[in-house]
């Protein structure tokens, strides 16, 4: 057993987790600031300079809140559900290539955690697992409306997973591999968003529906009688749900960047490999800004309109796109 490799993995995993969790905290801050600026307000500016310590304040508050478990709720699953929601959000980031290889202390270290040959499939698999947390949260609250809200949220996620899966296909077909790092490398000549604008658009829309963000956030809205599947949650368990949502936002932006926007590629990246993560971070920031902008701008879809859009609009479009792409590739060779 190569101890150096083991240590490298452990360090990289820890570093990635820390970066993700800090990123989540500051994504909440980013959201509040950007929303505020769009709404002609200022946003948090009291906790720390420019309000930068606001996420810390929120975290401390949530830790000190009373942990309530409803009377006849299923205690084990009630407590586990937020954890089950959080884990896929974290592990989906394992296959994202943050850069190429760099040399640290005389050792070649690759700037990604796992170079899996079926990277894209791994992402699909983890996305499918993330449905469980929502369903179990709704069920374990012992509240009829939480259950219905949870089932609807998960039905929404499953429906949009179809179109999402089909939107994954064009970059795979163009690059000829399921390995995410090789897909990024294949975009050295031209980013795939130029070849596949429709698939990029479908990917964006379906991933926003997957993450339950506006305008697809009816399961969390007050019009759903209760606040949907996380009504009965308070304190740190509630924080875990939001952690999962924002971490998924970051992950989805990173995946979109890797598949369509050239991942860690950018000017002068081949000479200075450390620029790779910087470029990827910029693209992730762009994706996050887009999602926050959408939330500030649009009203939300009603549930039946949402499902109709997913099944009758995006899924056929994605399918058609795949067929046309395959045809063109077969013709061109």
């Amino acid at each position: 057993m190569d101890w150096a490799m083991l240590i490298e993995w452990v360090v990289k995993a820890l570093l990635l987790t820390v970066i993700l969790l800090t990123g989540f905290a500051y994504t909440t801050y980013l959201e509040r600031k950007v929303l505020a600026w769009i709404q002609v307000r200022i946003g948090p500016n009291r906790a720390g300079p420019w309000g930068l310590l606001q996420p810390a304040a929120d975290g401390i508050k949530l830790i000190f809140k009373e942990e309530l478990i409803p009377a006849y709720a299923d205690k084990i699953i009630f407590v586990l559900a937020p954890v089950i929601t959080m884990i896929p959000a974290l592990i989906i980031n394992a296959v994202i290539p943050w850069g190429r290889e760099v040399v640290i202390f005389g050792r070649k270290v690759a700037l990604y955690l796992a170079d899996v040959n079926v990277g894209v499939l791994y992402i699909m698999a983890v996305a499918s697992i993330s449905v469980y947390g929502v369903v179990l949260a709704g069920w374990s609250s012992n509240n009829k409306y939480s259950l219905l809200g949870g089932l609807r949220a998960s039905a929404q996620m499953i429906s949009y997973e179809l179109a999402l899966g089909l939107a994954f296909l064009p970059p795979i077909m163009l690059a000829g591999t399921l390995n995410l790092r090789e897909i990024v490398e294949a975009q050295r000549s031209m980013w795939y968003v130029v070849y596949q604008p429709i698939a990029a658009f479908i990917f964006l829309v379906t991933s926003i529906a997957e993450v339950n963000r506006a305008p697809f956030d009816l399961p969390e809205a007050e019009q759903e009688l209760t606040a949907g599947y996380h009504t009965e949650y308070s304190g740190m368990k509630f924080a875990l749900f939001f952690m999962a949502e924002y971490t998924k936002m970051i992950a989805v932006s990173a995946i979109f960047a890797s598949l369509y926007l050239g991942g860690y590629l950018g000017p002068f990246e081949s000479q200075f490999p450390w620029l790779g993560p910087v470029y990827l971070a910029l693209k992730i920031f762009l994706g996050l800004f887009l999602m926050i902008w959408l939330r500030a701008t649009f009203p939300r879809f009603r549930y039946d309109q949402l499902m109709a859009l997913g099944w009758k609009g995006l899924f056929p479009l994605a399918l058609l796109n795949v067929v046309v792409t395959a045809g063109v590739l077969a013709l061109v060779g």
């Binding site: 305008p215 956030d217 009203p299 939300r300």
Partner: peptide, 17 residues
């Protein structure tokens, strides 16, 4: 009304200004 439709406060704040 726009807030009820889900447009999270943005049109409301523009009008309130």
């Amino acid at each position: 009304l726009l807030n009820d439709l889900g447009a999270f406060f943005t049109p409301a704040l523009y009008a309130i200004e």
